[in-house]
């Protein structure tokens, strides 16, 4: 069939939009930051996310990738104590910051959150769990600093950016409540 037949489509992905493929990274930086309490340096192209640097350069595969673009929370890590999405954080922007991943959550022995998740059966496939743990840890630390004990509803809201497909969240909320009790919350609810 000739190309000018209306039923013929010549297709090259993105060509209609005039996109030129770019594959070569020229802007590669050495990024230094604190990772789970230790100083690290990693060479990362500017377009690499923190998630990619952690997983594919630093070998910390505990941080997971689920949705590509900030919709699921599986890649949640803490930067300077706060829960953020490593899939939407450029690795170079972590320079000088304090990054914590699930690998750094328990020092020497499991963190109370990990123990509570284990006790309660809060992890089924476990794929969302590292991100869930990092969100929960940030939330509990913040509440504790403010001297507050979080309600179950507040915990659910704090985990609102972490999708789980296995559990229906029942045991995850149970576990965070249990860990909060163990860690000792603040005063009023």
């Amino acid at each position: 069939m000739p190309d000018n037949d209306p039923n013929v489509l010549r297709h090259r992905l993105g060509a209609a939009a005039g996109q030129q493929a770019r594959s070569e990274a020229r802007d590669v930086r050495v990024v230094a930051f604190t990772l789970n309490g230790e100083s690290v340096q990693v060479a990362a192209p500017a377009h690499w996310t923190l998630l990619e640097a952690l997983r594919y350069r630093l070998g910390l595969i505990g941080t997971k990738q689920g949705c590509d673009k900030g919709d699921c929370g599986a890649c949640t890590v803490r930067v300077d104590g706060e829960a953020v999405l490593s899939c939407l954080t450029l690795a170079v922007m972590a320079a000088g910051r304090r990054v914590e991943t699930v690998e750094g959550l328990g020092v020497g022995r499991p963190h109370p959150l990990q123990r509570a998740f284990d006790d309660c059966g809060a992890a089924q496939c476990g794929f969302c769990t590292p991100g869930m743990l990092m969100s929960a840890a940030a939330m509990l630390d913040q509440a504790r600093a403010a001297g507050r004990t979080l309600s179950r509803m507040e915990i659910a809201a704090g985990l609102g950016g972490n999708l789980c497909r296995c559990t229906g969240y029942v045991r995850i909320l149970d576990a965070v409540e249990q860990a909060q009790r163990e860690l000792g919350g603040g005063g009023e609810r």
């Binding site: 594959s23 990274a25 192209p45 500017a46 673009k69």
Partner: peptide
């Protein structure tokens, strides 16, 4: 996974 395409970053 979806990757960003190569780019240059400035931090003014």
């Amino acid at each position: 996974m979806l990757r960003l395409r190569p780019l240059t970053l400035h931090r003014p």
